[in-house]
Write a protein that binds this DNA or RNA. Structure first.
Lengths: 144, 144
DNA sequence: GTATATGCAAAGGGTTTGCACGGTT
DNA sequence: AACCGTGCAAACCCTTTGCATATAC
């Protein structure tokens, strides 16, 4: 179930509580990683009449009030997470497409340094890092 | 002018040398940062009949043979670079949209660590890092 | 009752693809 | 001569938008 005060966060933002809103939030929490389409599919298991545009609109609202975030993984649709999930970086393998998550903590020192040099405060979780996973990295190197 | 052996790299990959190919490469080098549309516009100053799909197809080919790369900056179209450009990370401000480049070297230690922990070999230049620039960071923090 | 949310359908940006013709090798 | 590359148009995926209706407040 959405965390206790989910409806408070919406109300505080001036938004209404609707079944669709709750279902979208629920779906994001259930799926842990979900694209808008996947979220739609999940929501439609309960409420088949819900429209894709409603998913998009509600993801935007839920993000604005701080209940969900999205990250860009690869070139396709973004994936949404509940905000209370563990903060993680996504690593996407260019070759096999495999996606792994690592604790965002590994980047702490790097981000501190980047900030010191440029003043830029980075949200490292927002985009997946691209590269080659353990399995594909050797093959990629051999190729050159 | 495209670097000396550009045509060799194409031939070695089994590709033919065409005016369009050369113009696309030329445009990428001239523009330094260019989306497919921007590259099209640049190419059309010389050859007005060139089609967008040719740009896409040739960017793919040029990338395959190692003459250009692309990076994803923000949510829109990717931008292409010549490979002999300085290797840099893009930082995109979520608020004002400003893009700055920093030498990829800052990330070296982080990437080493990431690799040690996960085996993942990251191409940090492939996606822009999102966050807040010096000007916008204070405002963003104040807002909470 | 009034403003906000929703569903639907249409439009939009960015990219890819099928096909016939033209150019490179 | 054989094959690859091109232009064109259509199709594609993902997302946004306009509008009339329905719903939360």
């Amino acid at each position: 179930m959405p965390s206790a005060s989910w409806d408070q966060k919406l109300r505080r933002g001036g938004y209404r509580i609707t079944p669709q809103r709750q279902l979208v939030l629920q779906a994001v929490e259930d799926l842990r990683h979900g694209t808008p389409e996947e979220i739609l599919a999940h929501v439609q298991r309960t409420a088949s009449g819900v429209n894709l545009s409603t998913i998009y609109r509600n993801l935007e609202v839920l993000e604005e009030v701080g209940l969900v975030t999205h990250a860009h993984i690869g070139h396709g649709a973004p994936t949404y997470h509940a905000v209370d999930d563990h903060v993680h970086i996504h690593l996407v393998c260019d070759k096999c497409g495999d996606v792994q998550s690592v604790d965002a903590q590994v980047a702490q020192e790097f981000l501190r340094e980047l900030r010191a040099q440029t003043g830029f405060v980075t949200d490292i979780t927002h985009v997946a890092l691209q590269g080659h996973c353990v399995k594909c990295a050797p093959a990629a190197r051999a190729k050159r």
